[in-house]
């Protein structure tokens, strides 16, 4: 029992020690990406998993965070690291506007609205060539560190803080209100819950965390363009898959999902010829998960354990 309670600290501690073990640069890179996706997954999970507002446009927030960092560097000559703090108000304002427009829509209409938003931002970034550089993207010419260790610690801290904040939020009044809204919006209203307000709070929190991941991405990768950071497939849809594979509305789900999705993508990409078809694989995986593990790996863990136990005795 206690093990479960301390598991997050133990995992965090072990991860923090990892760069000291002489781990390869490639492995460290994969881990950084896994942790970054955990952050995005946790953020999406707050809005989609707990509050029930399914977004197909989280690339909008990711891209906005990335471009905030990139433009601060490109236009104002500031360090792109300023993108982390400054993306917070930028993305919040954007999420408020978006919430005002879309949160009056329910269910599939909200999902479609967010989908459109992601696409609109990508096209805007592509066409505002004077401001964003358009398809050429933004490149940071002088990287902060050649070594990946510090990037690893920065994203690890961001993930730990995100995990902590989301856990606190979900276990508080906010969390109860989010889930009440997810389960039945009319019932929630009748219980005195200002559903528009609380949906807006969920959206802003989720957007800001995703934007932070985006700002980190700019710093870490050193290059962004609209097709990469506002991508429907590679960002918005993968975000949903990370959470669905890992387990919707669970604390560990997005982390498990990120690990599986990133490793899978790496493995598939390394297979010659087949590598190009990784979207197809992800599609098939999603279908399999929806049919056999509708609650994801964390959510259907008891079911999985039973299957493995049977396999052993047989």
């Amino acid at each position: 029992m206690d093990l479960k309670k301390y598991a997050p600290f133990i995992i965090l501690g072990l991860l923090a020690l990892l760069p000291l073990t002489g781990i390869s640069t490639y492995m460290l890179h994969v881990l950084i990406i896994v942790i970054m996706w955990s952050v995005i997954g946790m953020a999406w999970n707050l809005l989609g998993g707990y509050c029930g507002q399914v977004s197909f446009g989280h690339a909008a927030f990711f891209g906005m965070g990335a471009y905030t960092a990139g433009l601060l560097y490109e236009k104002l000559g500031m360090s792109a690291w300023w993108g982390l703090p400054i993306s917070v108000p930028v993305v919040t304002v954007f999420a408020l506007v978006m919430g005002f427009i879309f949160l009056r829509l329910r269910g599939p209409f909200f999902a479609l609205g967010t989908l459109a938003m992601g696409v609109i931002l990508r096209i805007t970034a592509e066409n505002l060539t004077g401001f964003t550089g358009g398809d050429l993207g933004i490149m940071i010419r002088e990287r902060t560190w050649v070594d990946k260790t510090w990037y690893f610690y920065i994203i690890l801290i961001l993930a730990a803080v995100t995990y902590y904040v989301i856990k606190k939020v979900v276990e508080s009044k906010l969390g109860y209100y989010f889930v009440a809204i997810r389960e039945d919006q009319d019932a929630a209203e009748s219980l005195g819950i200002d559903t528009t307000l609380y949906k807006t709070i969920a959206l802003c929190l989720s957007a800001v965390i995703t934007g932070l991941a985006g700002a980190f991405y700019m710093n870490y990768m050193g290059y962004i363009d609209p097709k990469v950071v506002f991508a429907l497939h590679d960002i918005s849809v993968v975000t949903i898959m990370v959470v669905m594979v890992g387990g919707v509305a669970t604390f560990s789900g997005p982390i498990i999902g990120a690990l599986i999705m990133v490793l899978l993508a790496e493995v598939i990409r390394s297979i010659p010829k087949l590598g190009m078809a990784h979207h197809t694989f992800f599609g098939i995986l999603l279908i399999v998960i929806i049919i056999f593990l509708p609650n994801g790996i964390a959510g259907d863990w008891p079911k999985l354990k039973k299957i493995f136990a049977k396999g052993k005795t047989a």
């Binding site: 009044k173 109860y176 209100y177 889930v179 009440a180 389960e183 039945d184 009319d186 019932a187 929630a188 009748s190 219980l191 005195g192 819950i193």
Partner: peptide
């Protein structure tokens, strides 16, 4: 309109927060 996937206790807690 029960909050379906919540326990009975959590249903009532959600409204008691008011």
């Amino acid at each position: 309109k029960p909050l379906q996937r919540m326990s009975v206790l959590d249903n009532v807690i959600a409204s008691a927060f008011l």
